[in-house]
Amino acid sequence: MLKIAVCVSGGGTNLQAIIDGIESGKISDTRIVLVFSNNPNAYALERAKKAGIPAVCKSPKNYPARDDFNKDFLETLKSAEPDLVVLAGCMVVIPKEIVRAFPNRIINIHPALIPSFCGQGYYGLHVHEKVLERGARVTGATVHFVDEGTDTGPIILQKAVMVEQDDTPEILQKRVMEQAEWKIMPKAIDLIAHGKVRVEDHKVIIDGYDPQSI
């Protein structure tokens, strides 16, 4: 049984996709042992409550220094004893101490096709704004392992989404979530739960991977 801790900052739509995936069987042999949020107003906390999942909120604003928050963040994750940490719309910069404590055991969902539209400053709606500003015809989402860089970890899954001519950032964001994010995050967790994912030379190898399955 894969035990996962899910870190969130906002509405928790990807968290809901994971909850639904576990309930439907699309994600098997997996249990959410903790939902962590840095935002007390995150609706994701309500989603966790409705699903009967333990949830913890710790805001950096309540600590005298960022290092104090980072230490408590790490200890909170460790106490849940997860096999995998899932960043599902988490706006906290993950400190190196946490990355080192969970090597190749932290995954993130990014709302674009890495290495395009990623790195410092590319998060949330801003990603979709930049996609439209550039006139890109195709965008999508990426699930990747987290390393000490920004969106530089090994890529696990990607799914493309077409950009339409009349898109606004909000419309594009919704389509990317529906057509890509909510599909590849549950799929990646299920693959990891069944031991089909490994990292070699900073690249992900997936045993028996069928790209048509997502």
Rank of each mutant, 00 (worst) to 15 (best):
V6R: 06
G12E: 06
D20K: 05
I22Q: 01
E23N: 14
K26V: 13
D29M: 00
I32A: 09
V33E: 14
L34Q: 15
S37N: 10
N38Y: 01
A44K: 12
E46H: 12
A48L: 10
A48Y: 14
A51H: 12
A51I: 12
P60K: 10
K61F: 00
K61L: 03
N62G: 15
P64C: 05
A65N: 07
F69S: 09
K71S: 11
L77Q: 09
E81C: 02
P82M: 05
V85D: 05
C90P: 01
R100F: 08
N108T: 04
N108F: 04
H110N: 02
A112E: 04
L113I: 13
Q120L: 03
Y122C: 00
Y123V: 00
H128M: 07
H128D: 07
A136D: 15
R137K: 15
V138I: 15
T139I: 09
H144Q: 10
G149S: 14
G153H: 01
P154S: 10
I156R: 10
A160D: 07
M162K: 13
V163I: 03
T168L: 02
L172K: 04
L172W: 04
R175W: 09
V176A: 05
E178F: 04
E178W: 04
I184C: 05
M185C: 01
P186H: 08
K187I: 02
D190M: 04
I192N: 06
D207H: 12
D207L: 07
